[in-house]
Every structure is written in structure tokens, then in C-alpha cells.
């Protein structure tokens, strides 16, 4: 070790010169996005379980059911869509949920447990910058993930993608609202595990259960009605429904509850969960648990 030089030192000159401005918070938030992405990409397990998982599941389902003919085909075997095409919207919805809820729920609970948040809480990093970093990281990884799922579906399984710009507009708002809702719910959920070590044990079962009852792995209309109603309380069912409206033919709308895509409710339920997540985050998030 060498000693530190005293050049350009302003030690002991009273209050710091900068002020706590929104501009500074946003600038630091953007620098957090790069930092978070770097840390995320270097964590092998979370990349696998949140980033690559839906791609893997799409491939498994597409291959497993490939011998069963098309869904919704005419009696003579023509028409309908492949199983890969049928599973595509569900996997995109699952990716949105995993990138937000599972990734942030586990990540922030772990950071709470291992002292990362305590260190940040003692530094002049605004809380809002921390959230900008997390949410930015989720958005960028979710966009790349959705792109990869679409690429694998198109190139690997020859799924026809929509050409109507209105469908892509629909995709954009369902995706944006879905991912931001997942983010705030993930942050809120991170308050639940009592330690960093228990984070995956608390978060993953919730996320997995939702995927099974929300029409991601199992055809939603196969489920008993009471379970459909129960699943309809949670946002994933509506994310998946919104994505089905983007990627499935119009004729499939009749398979939905009520026989329509019901897009207004897709927006309303996700919007309500976004507000709930935001309020829970506001109430529960602390840099550290004081006095434990």
C-alpha cells in the first residue's frame, strides 16, 4: 500500500457542493443499468432460470407435441396452427413474468441479505437510481429475451409471425405494461423472504404455480372453471391472453373465457397490479431492516 496524495483535496470544506437533483438521480440510474446488466450477465444461474428458461420450454413443448398435428385443424387435417405457434405467446408472457418478478424478487432479497443494500444505503445513491437500474436491466434483458423467443419460433419452428402493424402495436403495450408490472411486483415480493438464502425458495414456487394456472404450460380452457377464475385474479393470465391476441389467429378468440380477447380487461388487471405493486414497494422497501 502507498499513501494517498493530498492533491485536489477539498476535505473539510463544509457541505458538499452538489444538490440532490432529479437529473443526478437519472444519470446515476443509467449508470446503474450498465452495472446491473454486467452483474446479471455474469450470474450463470439467473441467466439460465430467468433468461433462457422460456426459450428452452418453448423448444421442449414444440418438439414434444410435434407429432400430434396442428391445433384447430379442419377434419381433413388442413389449417390450424402448430404447437410451437400455440405455445409462443405463453412463453413470451412467462419471460415477462420471470424477468421481472422472479429475477427482481430473488435478486433484491439476496442483495438485502448479503449486505449490498446496506452498502448502497450508506452511499449517496438515491433510491430512485437503484430502481432505475433494476427496471432498466429487466427491460433490456426482457426485450432481448422476447427477441430470442421470436427468433427461435420463427427460424427453429417455422412459426408465422404477425404482419399487421396493429398486432405489433398491441404487442408493444402488452409487453411494456406487463414488464413494468412484473418489475414492481418483483420489488414488492423481495420484502417477503426473511433472508437472502430463502429468496429462491419463496419466489420460485409462486412464479411456477402462476405459470401452470395461467395458461402458459397448460391450455387455459382445459382448467376447471373455478381455477380459471382464481388465475384471473393474477396478472400472468392476462399477459398470456394479451400475447395470444397478438400471435394467434382471430378464430382462437372463441377459446378464451367469454369468447373474446377481452383486451380492456388485459389492460385493467395489469394496471391494477402495477398500482398495487407500486404501493407495496413504497410501503415495504428499505435499504436495510432497521433494528433487527
Amino acid at each position: 500500500m502507498t499513501t494517498l496524495t493530498t492533491t485536489n483535496g477539498t476535505t473539510g470544506t463544509g457541505p458538499a457542493q452538489h444538490t440532490d437533483t432529479l437529473g443526478r438521480a437519472i444519470r446515476l440510474g443509467i449508470s446503474r443499468i450498465g452495472y446491473e446488466l454486467k452483474v446479471y450477465a455474469r450470474q450463470g444461474d439467473s441467466v439460465f432460470f430467468t433468461f433462457l428458461f422460456p426459450i428452452l420450454m418453448l423448444s421442449i413443448f414444440a418438439v414434444a407435441f410435434s407429432g400430434m398435428g396442428n391445433l384447430g385443424a379442419a377434419p381433413d387435417g388442413t389449417g390450424g396452427i402448430s404447437w410451437a405457434a400455440y405455445y409462443l405467446p405463453g412463453m413470451i408472457a412467462a419471460g415477462m413474468l420471470l424477468s421481472g418478478v422472479q429475477n427482481l424478487g430473488v435478486d433484491i432479497a439476496t442483495e438485502k441479505g448479503d449486505g449490498t443494500l446496506k452498502r448502497l444505503g450508506g452511499s449517496p445513491l438515491p433510491v430512485i437510481s437503484y430502481f432505475i437500474g433494476k427496471i432498466g436491466m429487466v427491460f433490456l434483458s426482457a426485450i432481448v429475451q422476447a427477441g430470442l423467443i421470436l427468433l427461435v419460433a420463427r427460424v427453429g419452428f417455422n412459426v408465422e409471425l404477425p404482419t399487421d402493424p396493429n398486432k405489433w402495436l398491441l404487442f408493444a403495450w402488452v409487453f411494456l405494461l406487463g414488464v413494468i408490472t412484473s418489475c414492481v411486483l418483483g420489488i414488492a415480493l423481495s420484502a417477503l423472504p426473511r433472508s437472502g438464502k430463502s429468496a429462491t425458495a419463496v419466489v420460485i414456487p409462486i412464479v411456477l404455480l402462476l405459470q401452470f394456472i395461467s395458461g402458459v404450460y397448460l391450455q387455459f380452457t382445459m382448467l376447471p372453471e373455478w381455477l380459471q377464475n382464481f388465475a384471473s385474479v393474477f396478472p400472468l393470465k392476462w399477459m398470456a391472453q394479451g400475447m395470444r391476441a397478438v400471435f394467434l389467429p382471430e378464430s382462437f378468440a372463441t377459446l378464451e373465457q367469454g369468447g373474446t380477447w377481452n383486451l380492456p380487461w388485459v389492460a385493467i388487471i395489469m394496471g391494477v397490479w402495477f398500482v398495487v405493486g407500486l404501493l407495496l414497494t413504497r410501503m415495504t422497501f428499505r435499504w436495510i431492516r432497521k433494528d433487527t
Partner: peptide, 29 residues
């Protein structure tokens, strides 16, 4: 507040952060 925190430095008792960044990256950040 933030301005106050900018004037203090804290070395906590040992922490167990995952440490997926390099020394230089962490300090630069």
C-alpha cells in the same frame, strides 16, 4: 440525506456480496 452521505465514508463489518464485478469496475462505479 444524500448530501450528508456524500461527506462520510463507511467501512462496514465484513459483508458477503456476490462480487461479480472487478475491483476496478466496482470502484469506478
Amino acid at each position: 440525506g444524500i448530501d450528508w452521505k456524500a461527506r462520510i465514508g463507511i467501512v462496514l463489518q465484513s459483508t458477503g456480496e456476490s462480487g461479480n464485478v472487478t475491483v476496478q469496475e466496482q470502484l469506478t462505479h
